[in-house]
Simulated scan of single mutants.
Amino acid sequence: MTTPGTSTGPRVAIVTGGSGGIGREVSQRLAADGMSVLVHYAGNPVTADEVVKAISDDGGTASSFGADVADEQQVGELFDVVEERYGGVDVVVHTAGIMLLSPLTEFDLDELDRMHRINIRGTFVVNQQAARRVRPGGAILNFSSSVVKLAFEGYTGYAATKGAVDAMTLILARELRGRDITVNAVAPGPTATALFLDGKDQATIDHLTNLAPLQRLGVPADIAEAVSFLAGPARWVNGQVVYVNGGVI
């Protein structure tokens, strides 16, 4: 696959949080689409290297790099590395984030600050570098959440961070006018990942499963399919929050 803009070689993607859950599936899908992939990790190089090996075993091109997404110097180094290894960057998929749940009245404010630092500041920092470096014909994809509009109890702090992601996405798309770079957010619904299933009893899982008309939980491959579309052929989808949730309203 070649870049729709100025690059003539394989497209190059950075996937933050690319070593686990949805990020892992996204990394492997973009590699299968023909992109060279930089798999970012926050603290565990072992799982990132597993993703790199899986991609390489399937004939793809990938490598890994660790960085704190909220640290502008480290994120700058991340982009430096991908440019040094692959010659540039065309796609940035920012899946990295954390989810801490509690009713608003009981939420620990230090935990709230930690989540805001990763989910809001991290998105801002990664988008800042992406906006400066992504080549024409490229795409920037953030990760929001369907819970912003579903308004589940206990999700106040998390949903607030993802509402901020929505705002950044919509405004950045307009600020990049004339650059031929799309900016969108993917908003998954209930998706069967270890992060999502952790701490939930079977009754809760069954309830969430039945929210969608398709009567199943999403799987990471469902989300990766949407990312592949927005990162590749979907050049006329821009400045949108795309709900990938099986029809949950």
Score class of each variant (00 low, 15 high):
A194I: 08
D57Q: 14
G20E: 12
A48P: 02
V125K: 04
Q215R: 15
V75E: 05
P4I: 11
V148M: 11
V237G: 05
R216Y: 06
T2V: 14
L30F: 03
G34W: 09
A167T: 13
P10D: 09
P136I: 05
A54V: 07
G20R: 15
T182A: 07
R174P: 00
G17F: 10
G9F: 01
G60C: 09
A32Q: 12
A130L: 03
E72S: 14
G5R: 03
A131F: 07
T204R: 10
V93A: 09
A159V: 01
I55P: 08
Q128V: 01
A48D: 06
Q28V: 13
I223V: 14
F152T: 02
A13K: 08
A187Y: 02
V147I: 13
R177Q: 13
V186E: 00
F143P: 02
G34Y: 09
D198A: 15
A194Q: 15
A42C: 00
I14M: 12
D33C: 07
D166S: 10
R11A: 09
G122P: 09
V12G: 08
G178P: 05
G246I: 02
V52H: 04
A224S: 11
S102H: 10
A159S: 15
V227N: 06
R235G: 13
I120E: 02
L176A: 10
L217R: 04
V134W: 05
G76K: 10
V26C: 12
D206H: 02
H116N: 11
T16N: 12
M115K: 01
R117T: 11
I171C: 13
R24L: 07
K53F: 04
Y86W: 10
I118G: 05
G154T: 06
Y155E: 09
G18M: 03
E83I: 10
A32L: 10
M168Q: 13
D110E: 14
L38V: 11
N184L: 05
R133M: 01
R29S: 13
F152G: 12
Q240A: 14
A231F: 03
F196S: 07
S102Y: 00
N119A: 00
G97Y: 03
S64R: 05
W236A: 01
P103M: 06
T193I: 01
Q240D: 09
A226I: 08
V93F: 14
V26H: 10
K162R: 12
A221T: 14
G66Y: 08
V15P: 12
V46P: 13
L197H: 07
R24V: 07
E77L: 13
I120H: 00
T2G: 14
D57W: 13
P190I: 06
G23Y: 06
T3F: 00
V82Q: 06
N210C: 03
L176K: 06
T182V: 04
A160C: 02
D110R: 10
V51A: 09
G9N: 12
S64M: 12
A164T: 01
V51P: 05
N119R: 03
Q73T: 14
R179E: 13
N184M: 04
D80E: 14
F124I: 10
P10M: 01
A203S: 14
T3L: 12
L100D: 11
G9P: 04
R133N: 05
A221V: 08
G43M: 09
T6F: 11
S27K: 09
